[in-house]
């Protein structure tokens, strides 16, 4: 049977097609990640994916929803991948599982499932983990080229599942504080920016290795823009605002404030700009609203990074702006055809 009423034509598109393209756009980032930090991230991705699909299925069953369309829509996988990419790649297995469970069960399904979650599920999962398990969350592996010891995939698996390191190695040998973290602590110790940045963990643009991954995310983001999966508003407003604040303060006091490129290419800024803040469900829908939303995340990210208690502010920035979405939408309604403003 064709549609009950017009229009009888529709574009060849679907939610799962959109989600598949988002996943595809993440592939360059993941590849870069593996290249820089080793293949541990693949384990996290797999863990998160399985957890997400199983918990989504269980919740759908409990809520009496059809399984097929909602499992196939790919949205759970997107949440899982974003969360996994935001976590340290050598995070213990239970951290990934707990975070994903929280994201899918609480932040998504308990709010009504696909389309109904007011908060970005991946960021809810991330924030919960950051608050509950701060130590595990800040144990990042050093990029392979900087690490004192390289772990084989088997060693990484051992570490992820059993927290067992090859004999003779300590945690410090494979992990390091993140550059954003280092920057913050060093600044507190009144070291100058130039000295801090001279450390090997800082790269040309952002952080060594991290900047490559960020570049790969940017590539994926361009693909999403080209495919019209996302619009330019949120990424441009977010990155623009972040760069603006960073440049402003960097110009005033280059010794205490990192420059714009550093901010754009370190931490989760790029991932957030193109993949997290652009989540349609928890974001605003009007073009003006998207600009405000993106700019708001930019401001909050920079503020949290600069003065806040957490090294990277992206997750909290996104969640805080999620709260404002209904308000933003209500006040940015565009002028309707034939109406005065």
């Amino acid at each position: 049977m064709m549609a009950m009423a017009s229009p009888y034509l529709s574009e060849q598109t679907s939610v799962s097609m959109i989600m598949r393209k988002v996943l595809l756009a993440l592939v360059p980032g993941i590849a870069a990640y593996v290249w820089v930090y080793g293949s541990g991230i693949l384990v996290s991705l797999l863990l998160a994916s399985v957890t997400a699909l199983v918990s989504e299925a269980v919740m759908l069953k409990l809520r009496g929803r059809p399984l097929r369309p909602f499992l196939l829509d790919g949205s759970a996988l997107v949440t899982a991948w974003l969360l996994a990419l935001a976590l340290p790649p050598i995070a213990p297995w239970w951290l990934v599982v707990v975070g994903t469970l929280f994201a899918i069960v609480v932040a998504k399904q308990l709010y009504g499932g696909l389309g109904y979650n007011p908060f970005n599920p991946a960021m809810v999962g991330y924030a919960v983990l950051l608050i509950s398990f701060p130590v595990a969350m800040t144990q990042w592996p050093a990029p392979l080229e900087l690490a004192q010891a390289k772990l084989s995939l088997l060693d990484q698996l051992r570490y992820i599942f059993g927290r067992v390191l090859p004999s003779g190695l300590t945690v410090d040998a494979i992990s390091s504080a993140t550059p954003l973290d280092t920057l913050k602590t060093q600044l507190k110790l009144h070291h100058g920016m130039a000295d801090i940045m001279a450390a090997p963990m800082f790269g040309t643009l952002g952080t060594k290795g991290g900047e490559i991954v960020a570049g790969a995310y940017l590539l994926g983001g361009v693909y999403l823009l080209w495919q019209r999966i996302i619009t330019w508003h949120v990424p441009v407003a977010f990155l623009g605002m972040l760069a603006l604040l960073a440049s402003g303060c960097h110009l005033i006091d280059a010794d205490r404030y990192a420059g714009p490129l550093f901010h754009l290419f370190s931490g989760a800024a790029m991932l957030c700009a193109f993949f997290i803040a652009t989540d349609p469900v928890s974001g605003p829908t009007t073009p003006k609203g998207k600009l405000i939303f993106g700019a708001g995340i930019g401001i909050l990210t920079w503020v949290i990074r600069t003065w806040g208690g957490y090294p990277d502010g992206v997750a909290f920035a996104v969640l805080l702006m999620n709260i404002c979405v209904p308000l933003i939408d209500a006040y940015t309604q565009p002028r309707v055809f034939g109406h005065e403003k």
Binding site: P69, D73, G113, L114, G115, Y116, P280, V281, T285
Partner: peptide
């Protein structure tokens, strides 16, 4: 079959 609105705008 219709899916929920994902607010994609």
């Amino acid at each position: 079959l219709p899916m929920p609105c994902i607010r994609c705008a």
